[in-house]
Design a protein around this nucleic acid. Sequence first.
DNA 1: GCCATGTTTGTAAACGTTAACTAACATAAG
DNA 2: CTTATGTTAGTTAACGTTTACAAACATGGC
Lengths: 214, 214
Amino acid sequence: MATRTRLDHQTRQHQIVEAARDLIASGGLDALTIRGIASKVGVTEAAIYRHVDSKEEVILLLIQEVEESLFHAISRATRSDRHALERLEHMLQLHVSYVELRQGISFIVIAEAAQFEEPKVRSAGRRLVEKYLSLVSEIIAQGIERDEVSKSVFPDAAAMIFFGMIQSAVTRWLFDPSTHPLGENAVSMWKLFRTSLEFSGEDSNRYSQEDGMN
Amino acid sequence: MATRTRLDHQTRQHQIVEAARDLIASGGLDALTIRGIASKVGVTEAAIYRHVDSKEEVILLLIQEVEESLFHAISRATRSDRHALERLEHMLQLHVSYVELRQGISFIVIAEAAQFEEPKVRSAGRRLVEKYLSLVSEIIAQGIERDEVSKSVFPDAAAMIFFGMIQSAVTRWLFDPSTHPLGENAVSMWKLFRTSLEFSGEDSNRYSQEDGMN
DNA sequence: GCCATGTTTGTAAACGTTAACTAACATAAG
DNA sequence: CTTATGTTAGTTAACGTTTACAAACATGGC
């Protein structure tokens, strides 16, 4: 083994989380092992423990990374001043791209965290989901204030449906990516779901039915 | 070591699947071990292999059992001749009760199967999801024929939203059952979602807005 | 500039535990 | 007697983690 490479703490921790992400993406949480991480990073197992206290910390760092990258990915859609339904549609689009790019790890991580025993891991996963739902809920609530969304819509319920749409699309896509393209399924669900957010007789600000994805 | 109980193949296999279900329900797929099953059944590990070829077979039997029990649980809703939206609402209600009764194992099993490497396990999980979606999709398609559901609805997309509603409700519920009651979240989502299935101007057979759950 | 000292980052090898699974032998039932 | 259902006692392999030691790096006193 030729030249021994020495890298600093921060870089190594980043490499560890990246390796953890890759391992989970291609084999579920079972495939996440210290051995596997060490192998991907290119150091021995013991070296991993120089930069991380335990396997649990790896998982916590991974959840944190997923949270940051996900919210960064969809941030472009949230901060605009556009119509609430346009923002949601854009957000869905960005979220789908993110999932495809990261091979679904976000939902795998959430699913695993939900059935973990460790309280820290559970609550980290829970906070991620709740933060996402709050974001969507907030957009819808704003939409109602601006008469862009029907007053009869409960923002929380709508946010959960929105989240569920992505979840069901990802589930199918994980089983068979080729026959269940993420984007197409998401778009067709959105076209249907938005009708339940739109006005239903009442006056409202317009949201064209024919713009949007595709 | 009192009376040595000897039971037949079929009974033991049933006990094994039941034990597997309990283990997963209270600790995720990590908690599913041959040791754990043996302990719950009340025999030694080696005895388990008299009735099952491998751990993989346990998982396959479990998926099969989940499929059978789930479809049996919701069958009352599907075979009726009532309004399509009533059938869906009833189905949602029964599905929620089933998930609560079985502590969410159906969705845990699906989530795990989706990231398994073993092709048999993957396709068993995939078939379960597809079968469920087909069932919902079929009900909606029938509803369209009978003018109970808007013609503009795509049955496949609607079925995925329906499935996603339950999935998101279960996800939250798994994280914190007390603050996110499954039934209540499901009902509030349904109330919103059904508006996108109903007529929107066109003639249609009536579906009262005020009957249903609660 | 050089070198003694302390810290960081690495390795090799092993630890104890647990996993799935198996072979050899025992015994109840038909 | 034969077969199906058990047990006891083991195997092999993988896991997370730790220990003892080495090499790279930083730095303050001379």
